[in-house]
């Protein structure tokens, strides 16, 4: 695991990594939850790509674990104004998930156990920008942080990184998700401080 310098070199480097209105939470990792934590048994878990695609694409937990994983080190930014630097994950790139999937869709709704949803442009999930991660800091992803698997889209506010994700629905129209229907920004770029609709 990387040891991050807390010296003034690190401080200077970090300053440019903090989006407007955010603060560095350091070693903390707040658990923000809008509902009970699901505990889906792994033998019942699957991940699906559905919607406007050429048939259903589905992976069981074992099949998902067998997909090529890659390590990811990124900064994450929560809309409640904390940011966390150099978080280490491992997961499957959405590029891998969508390999061989034929679609004309431009939008995605990620959906989760417990009913949570969030919407994103498809182009924000591809090109090495997003993953389905099952490992955090070299440990299986804990349920309170979205385990067994969550979406990771670090260039957008963290509510877009759906916990307990179970699949992606590809659509030709944009369908606002759980927070997006409650006045939160449809896109959620932390660098443009897109917290609320109209920001």
């Amino acid at each position: 695991m990387a040891v991050v310098s807390r010296g003034f070199h690190g401080r200077g480097r970090r300053d440019g990594r903090l989006p407007p209105g955010q603060r560095d939470i350091g070693d903390g990792f707040p658990v923000l939850t809008a509902g009970p934590t699901p505990h889906t048994p792994l033998e019942e878990w699957d991940f699906v790509v559905q919607g406007e695609v050429d048939g259903l694409h589905r992976w069981t937990w074992e099949e998902f674990r067998a997909l090529p994983h890659e390590p990811v080190t990124v900064d994450i930014h929560c809309v409640t104004s904390w940011s966390k630097f150099d978080t280490h994950w491992s997961g499957v790139s959405i590029d891998t998930v969508l390999e061989g999937v034929e679609t004309a869709a431009e939008y995605v709704v990620a959906f989760s156990d417990g009913g949570y949803t969030t919407n994103l442009p498809l182009e924000d999930l591809t090109g090495g920008q997003a993953w389905v991660v099952d490992t955090y800091e070299d440990e299986p992803l804990a349920p309170e942080h979205g385990g067994p698997a969550r979406l990771l889209v670090p260039h957008l506010y963290f509510w877009k990184s759906a916990k307990w994700v179970r699949g992606l629905a590809l659509t030709s129209f944009d369908e606002p998700g759980f927070w997006e229907t409650f006045g939160y920004h449809n896109y959620g770029d932390p660098w443009r401080e897109q917290r609320y609709a109209g920001d």
Partner: peptide, 10 residues
């Protein structure tokens, strides 16, 4: 659920 970005009542 008061800890989410808003209060969620279930």
């Amino acid at each position: 659920y008061p800890d989410a970005p808003a209060l969620v009542v279930r």
